[in-house]
Design a binder for these strands. Structure first.
Lengths: 147, 147
DNA sequence: TAGAGATTCTTGACTCGTTCCAGTTTATGT
DNA sequence: ACATAAACTGGAACGAGTCAAGAATCTCTA
């Protein structure tokens, strides 16, 4: 339950208009990274009473556009948001429960950014998703004696 | 307009029941890789007269499950399908027009499959998406004098 | 610290991609 | 050829996200 005001300057400096809803949205992502819009909306309601779904979507869009948030969109699950922007890191996704974890890039600043033959494309970002199973689900699976 | 029959054995060997719709769906993906479900449905209708949307989705699902197709899901666009399975290759996505191109993996069989700290996850696949602009859109953009 | 003007929030309808359902049709194994 | 299981059809439904109009709020200048 940190006071949302602490983020006011951050938002203003990024050129985003400061409103109660947006502070709450940002604070929610800070507190619980990798949540989807719905979870964030619930958290915000918990914090400031009520918000419309659109305010949340709009806030997330504005904050993402301003470079304060990063939007991750793993196939098979709704978009998620995190505050780690600017550094080049990637994600681990659990095939079983959908959990998401950060991984630092193995190859420095811009990994794999140079494919063998870019086919004429000008590349500005490489996004890596590692698919596997999180520790919890590995245990659960082996407990049930599955392959 | 290749006769769809040529794929019958392929499907049967993969354990997929052979039907006219599925042959047509598979043939369509062979002929036009990286299409989405809607485009495939249109192509199939063109080839065999008519199909329900569900038959297409179901066929795609069955073929994907059987390992004959690979489903690619770039953020911001509907799922697309291709027949290149088994080899480890990645994709270039154009930010402007959404075009998709194949890239062979820069690092051999299983690239980047070993992140610095897998956080306890057991990883079975690394998926890389390169974001950029296709040659056509680069031209169009520079023509208009944009940055 | 007011007031003007722009931006954001709310409510509600709506699109898009995809899945679920019940019933009929089609393929497969003996 | 026949029984059984699987796939197809049409239509309804769903989740995530967007669009639109008016009301509320913020920011900037005076």
């Amino acid at each position: 339950m940190s006071p949302p005001h602490v983020h006011a300057k951050t938002l203003r400096d990024a050129g985003v208009q400061v409103t109660g809803q947006r502070l709450a949205v940002y604070d929610e992502v800070v507190r619980r990274p990798h949540s989807d819009a719905d979870t964030i909306a619930a958290g915000v309601r918990d914090a400031i009473g009520s918000v419309s779904t659109q305010a949340v979507y709009d806030g997330l869009r504005a904050l993402t556009a301003a470079g304060l948030l990063r939007r991750i969109e793993p196939p098979g699950s709704p978009a998620r948001f995190e505050t780690r922007v600017g550094d080049n890191h990637h994600h681990l996704v659990c095939r079983t429960c959908g959990a998401l974890a950060d991984v630092d890039c193995a190859l420095g600043e811009t990994p794999c950014l140079e494919p063998t033959d870019p086919a004429g494309y000008s590349i500005d970002e490489a996004e890596v998703i590692y698919w596997g199973q999180c520790p919890t689900c590995q245990e659960a699976t082996s407990d049930r004696g599955e392959s």
